[in-house]
Amino acid sequence: MSEFAAVRPAPAAAAQGFLGRARRSPALIAGVVLMTLLVLVAVLAPWLATHDPNAQNLTAGLLAPSPEHLFGTDQLGRDIFSRVLHAASTDLRIAVLAAILPFLTGVLLGLVSGYFGGRLDYVIGRIVDTIIAFPFYVIVISIVFAVGAGEGGIYAAFAIVGWVGYARVVRATTASMRASGWVIAARGGGLSDRRVILRHILPNALPQAVVLLMTEIVLIMVAIVTLGYLGLGVQPPTPDWGTMIADGQPFVTTKWWISALPGFAVIYTGIALSLLGDGLADAWRVK
């Protein structure tokens, strides 16, 4: 993070300001702590899990939480605690992977669109408008339908629709900076467009994009879980919070923890990422 700050127009002051504000932002601190915990759990899932997440025990289903099974067992006798942990690594991995490509394309298209303007800007702008017109779940479900349910479908869907937010935000910053004095001066001084974009505009546009990335990961995570619930996402037997909630649905009134615990895991992730995003926004003074 300090690398981004270091290349800003006034590097030293900005870095100090960022770190100083970061230390004073309770949201950022809480977000970092919650997120670190989550990532640790996801990465260490194979070691933290007390059972094989897919091992069925057909005569020991629907057990209540106990020292042996911390979160109880599901209908097929699988250990819910171990499944929730493994699902964390599945869902987090997919969400992060699915977020990377649209982040890169979105930032790139936003820079190009805002910096060069003209016809290219117009075309990219209309593509953004078109994609935004489709309700998020309608377009995601249609793409998953076309490409096939499962992980591949999720990546394809977000690669196609996920970049528009970054493109909008980055384009706005870029376009406003293009007209600013120092960019005009830099170009006049013979710096190449590439250099101006990479060294001067990108560092200023990036913080906003990174803040947006946090929100987008929440959105993708919720979408993965929703697709799982609808049977279009992560396919069994791979543990996933969405399919776990769906499996527990017949028991919501009697054995609430089966559906509720994976649900809480989703909410925890959402809070952690939102706090991280808010905190970064505070520290970077991004609105």
């Binding site: 057909l58 097929l76 049977g231 037997p237 769906a246 499996d247």
Partner: peptide, 16 residues
Amino acid sequence: ASGNAQRAQEAQIVQA
């Protein structure tokens, strides 16, 4: 067929 929670469970047992 979807909409039958019991069969969805049977399917996962067969799969395993």
